[in-house]
Nucleic acid binder design. Structure first.
Lengths: 246, 246
DNA sequence: CGAGCAATTGAGACAAGTCAAAGCTGGTGG
DNA sequence: CCACCAGCTTTGACTTGTCTCAATTGCTCG
C-alpha cells in the first residue's frame, strides 16, 4: 500500500508532470483542487487509460477499486434491469469524477461513446491523498452535491414531464455556455431515449416536431442541433409553454 | 460570525448536552461522526426546531442559510413545476441530513408529514466545524454518495419500471430491517404517487391488485402494509416477475 | 351522527409504446 | 468513383398502460 504521500517537493523540472500540463480537463476537475506545485502527488498515483468506442470501463456491481477522472471524450453511465431495460443516469465528460460509491460497489456501468481518455486512481492511495489535502475532500463533496441536485432535477423530468418537455430540457442541459445555441450530440438517439425514459421513436418524432415548429434545426449528420427559439425552448423545458401539445 | 470552535473541553457535566443524549437519531446521523466527548461543539451551534404537520421548513430556491438534521418524524422533499406538477424526490427521517446545495440555494422544498423535529445549523458555523473535524466531512461525503446511489436507483424506477414494479420497489425500499414484512406508510397515497411518478388512482389500483394477488395485506387504516410474499415482491421490484401484467 | 378528507372504483381518452417498413449516412471494396 | 452494406434514424399504423374525470366508499374526529 502506497502511503508515502508526504515527500520533499522535487526539483522544478519534475513538478506538474507533462501529462497534467497538457490536460484540457484539469481546470474543471479534482486536480484543480491542488495547486500546480502539488499536482505531482496526484500524478504519482494516476494510471492513464483509454477506452475505445463502445468499450465498457466500469461495470455495475463490480468491486469499486478505482476512481476515474475523465480527461477526454464522453461516456454513458447506465443501469440495467434483469430483462434488459436500460436507464442512462448521465453522460460524463472531461473533468467528471466517477466512482463515489459508499457501498464499495459501482452503482452503474460506464461505456465510452467514441474514444474516452481517463485517469484511474486506486482507492487506497486516493483516500490517503484526501487525508493529506482537505481541499480535495471539499471539492468532492461539492461535486457530489452538484450531482445530487442534477439527479433530483432528472427525477422531476422522469416523473413529471411530457416527452416534448424532456427533449427541451435535455437540449438546454447540454447547451454549452460558450456556444449557447449550438448543441453537440455525440450519443445516439437510443442513448437519448434511455436517458429521458422514452423510446427512440418518441425521441425522433419529438425532435422532428420541434424542428417543424421552428424551435430547433437538426444538422444533416444529426449530431448537431441549433437552437432557433431559445426562449420558447426554455419555457417548454419547465412545462410552461402555451402551445402545441405534441 | 462564530468561529471560536477550538476551546478547552469544559467540565464533565457540560459534555454531551442533555438533548443530544436523549436524541434517538444520533447513532444514524452526522453527530455520530464526533466522539461523545466532542458533541458539545455541535450542540453549541445547533438550534432545535419543530415543524407541525404539513408545515414547510425548507423552500426550493430560497437562500440555503442552514443545514438541517432530522431527529424525529418524516418529511417529504419535493420539487414543483410552474404549472403545479409535483415530484417528491425523497422522504427524510431521523438521522437524515438536509441542505447540501453547492449553488447556495435549496434545490427542493421540505414539508413535515406529521410532526417533525430537527436541529438547524447555520452554514457558517458548520463550515468552520468541518474544517476542525475531518471525520464530519467524510461522513457528509459518504452520505452524499449514498444519496446519489439512491437517486440513480430512483431514476431507473421512474424511467423504466411499470406502475406495479414501482409500487413493489417502493414497498421494499421502505421495509425496515428490524420488521422486514411490516411497512409503515405515514405519507398519503398522493405523496406515494408523486414519489413514483404516477397518479393517486394508479397507486390505489395497483395496491388493491397486489392485495388481491395475495402479495400484500393493507391494514384497515391504510397506514400499514404487511408483506405476504416477499420473494414475489422482490422479483416484481426488479422487473423479473413472470406473471400478471396488471 | 355527519362533515371533511382520503382512498377506492369505474368508464373513457390519450400520450407514448410496439411493430413494421422505408430513408439516410458513412464506410468499404471492387 | 460508385455500388452496396450495415446501422442508425425517421415515419406510419395500431395497441395499450396510465391518466383524466366522475362517483362512491370508508375512515377519523368533533
Amino acid at each position: 500500500m502506497n502511503m508515502a504521500i508526504v515527500l520533499p517537493i522535487p526539483s522544478a523540472e519534475v513538478i506538474a508532470p507533462c501529462f497534467c500540463n497538457a490536460c484540457d480537463a484539469r481546470p474543471a476537475s479534482v486536480c484543480n483542487a491542488l495547486p500546480a506545485k502539488l499536482l505531482f502527488h496526484l500524478a504519482r498515483i494516476a494510471h492513464r487509460g483509454v477506452a475505445n468506442a463502445n468499450m465498457s470501463f466500469i461495470a455495475e456491481g463490480e468491486k469499486a477499486e478505482n476512481y476515474f477522472n475523465i480527461s477526454a471524450g464522453t461516456a454513458r453511465l447506465y443501469k440495467l434491469l434483469p430483462n434488459g431495460r436500460r436507464q442512462i443516469i448521465g453522460f460524463a465528460g472531461p473533468g467528471d469524477f466517477l466512482g463515489l460509491a459508499a457501498s464499495g460497489q459501482f452503482a452503474f456501468s460506464a461505456e465510452a461513446i467514441g474514444e474516452v481518455e481517463f485517469c484511474r486512481y486506486p482507492r487506497q492511495s486516493w483516500r490517503a491523498l484526501i487525508g493529506e489535502f482537505p481541499a480535495m475532500a471539499q471539492f468532492l463533496l461539492d461535486s457530489a452535491s452538484n450531482e445530487l441536485v442534477a439527479a433530483q432535477e432528472q427525477m422531476l423530468l422522469l416523473g413529471r414531464k411530457t416527452a416534448r418537455e424532456r427533449l427541451a430540457s435535455f437540449l438546454i442541459e447540454r447547451s454549452d455556455p460558450a456556444t449557447p445555441h449550438l448543441i453537440a450530440l455525440p450519443m445516439t438517439r437510443i442513448d437519448i431515449a434511455d436517458y429521458l425514459g422514452l423510446t427512440v421513436e418518441t425521441v425522433s418524432r419529438n425532435l422532428t416536431q420541434l424542428s417543424v415548429d421552428g424551435i430547433i434545426t437538426v444538422s444533416r449528420s444529426r449530431a448537431t442541433i441549433a437552437i432557433i427559439d431559445g426562449a420558447r425552448l426554455r419555457a417548454m423545458a419547465n412545462g410552461s409553454d402555451i402551445s402545441s401539445p405534441i
